[in-house]
Every structure is written in C-alpha cells, then in structure tokens.
Amino acid sequence: MSKIILTNMCMVYDQENNKVLVQNRIKSWKGITFPGGHIEDGESLVESTIREVKEETGLTVANLEPCGVINWYNEEKDERYFVFNYRTCDFSGELLKETDEGDVFWVHKDNLRQLDFAEGMEERLPMFLEKAYAEGFYHEEQVKWY
C-alpha cells in the first residue's frame, strides 16, 4: 500500500484591490505559489489550511471555498500525493514581513502570470482563478485536467 501524503494550498484574494497573496518558496518546490502545507494527524482539510496560511502569512482566513484537487503517484517513493486547493476573500490580520518558507507579498491579479512560478504552478492557476476544472492528475510527465 502506497504512503499517502495530504497537503493544501489557498489563494487569498483581496477583492477591493484586485490583488492575490503569493509566496516565494525557498525550501521545497521553489518559486512562486500560494500559501499551504501538510495536513497533520487529527486536522480537517479546512483546519489545516487555515493553520498553514496563518503560519506562513500571519493572516487568519475563513470561509474557504474548495476549488479543486491536484494529485499524483511517485513510483520511486511509492507515495500518492494530494493537494486540496481552496480560495477565499475573507481574511484578517497583519501580513508577516518574512517567514522560514519564503517571502509573502500581494501582487495585482493582472500581473500574476508574469511571476516566476514553482514548477507546475502556472498551469494550476485556472483552477484557482476561474474554477476551470476540479482535478489535475499528474502521470508520466503529463497532466490531465478534469
């Protein structure tokens, strides 16, 4: 039986200023992404996402809207990996200046695609921005969108 790894990611959107919160990751999966991380034992998907966003940005999010799942199987490690994706416009708090994971900052939604994304992140944007599909499945160097 494969090891299953559960993670999350959340796009925080400031409707008033038409900006999206991004993170320039410096540890794993380097480059621009949305905040997120691993789901811990005993946590729900939403609870873990709220915790990860708080840890990585300083912001408290609420009213998370599911916007899709990304998943793949890593044969070398015999791992099945899931990323549960959310978005929200409901946030409060003070943005952290820096974190161990990398800098977080607001970017205008129209300038989002000009950033240096982590591998595979740019192709996921329609899931967050337009709800264009519900699932992305990576298999043999290809992705299928459903």
Rank of each mutant, 00 (worst) to 15 (best):
D78K: 06
Y86H: 11
K30H: 02
E56F: 12
W29Q: 03
I70S: 15
M1H: 06
E130K: 13
Y86C: 10
T57R: 01
G136C: 12
D41L: 11
F137S: 05
W106C: 06
H139V: 04
D14P: 09
L112R: 02
A118E: 10
C67L: 14
L59W: 05
N18Y: 07
G68C: 13
I70K: 12
Y138I: 12
T57W: 00
F91Q: 04
E43I: 07
G120L: 11
K3A: 09
E135Y: 05
D41R: 08
G58Q: 10
V12I: 12
E16C: 03
K77T: 12
K27M: 09
C89L: 01
V12T: 08
H108E: 15
R51H: 08
M121I: 14
H38A: 13
L64M: 07
R51E: 01
N18H: 12
L96K: 07
L129I: 14
I4R: 09
K144R: 13
Y81D: 11
D103A: 13
L64S: 06
I5S: 03
I4L: 04
E56C: 09
K54R: 12
S48F: 02
Y73C: 03
N17G: 00
T7S: 15
F34P: 03
M1E: 07
E65F: 00
G42K: 07
N18G: 06
E43Y: 03
G120I: 09
D110Q: 06
N71Y: 15
G136P: 00
Y146H: 03
G102K: 07
Y73K: 03
Q114M: 09
I4H: 05
S44L: 03
Q114D: 14
F84L: 04
A134K: 15
I4M: 05
P66F: 11
A134S: 12
M11I: 04
R80Y: 12
F91A: 05
F105W: 01
L21H: 00
Y86L: 08
T99D: 00
V107I: 15
S92Q: 14
W72Y: 15
G42L: 03
K144A: 07
E101D: 07
M121H: 09
M1I: 10
T49V: 09
E56K: 15
T33C: 03
E40Q: 11
K77H: 07
T57D: 08
H108C: 03
E65P: 00
L64F: 06
E65S: 08
F82K: 12
I4V: 08
G42D: 06
V69Q: 11
I50C: 11
Y138D: 01
F34V: 01
G42V: 02
R80L: 07
L21F: 04
D100M: 14
G31M: 05
V20E: 04
G102L: 05
M9T: 15
L6E: 10
Q142K: 13
C89M: 09
D90S: 15
D103V: 00
N8I: 10
L21A: 06
E79H: 13
L21G: 11
Q142V: 10
H38C: 10
T7R: 12
Y73H: 13
L125W: 11
R113H: 14
M121Q: 08
S92R: 09
Y138C: 00
D110V: 00
L59K: 01
R124N: 10
L59Y: 02
F137H: 14
G136K: 14
K27F: 02
L96V: 05
P66N: 14
V12H: 07
L59F: 04
E76G: 01
K54H: 11
T60V: 07
E98Y: 14
E119P: 00
V12Y: 02
L112P: 05
E16R: 06
K77G: 00
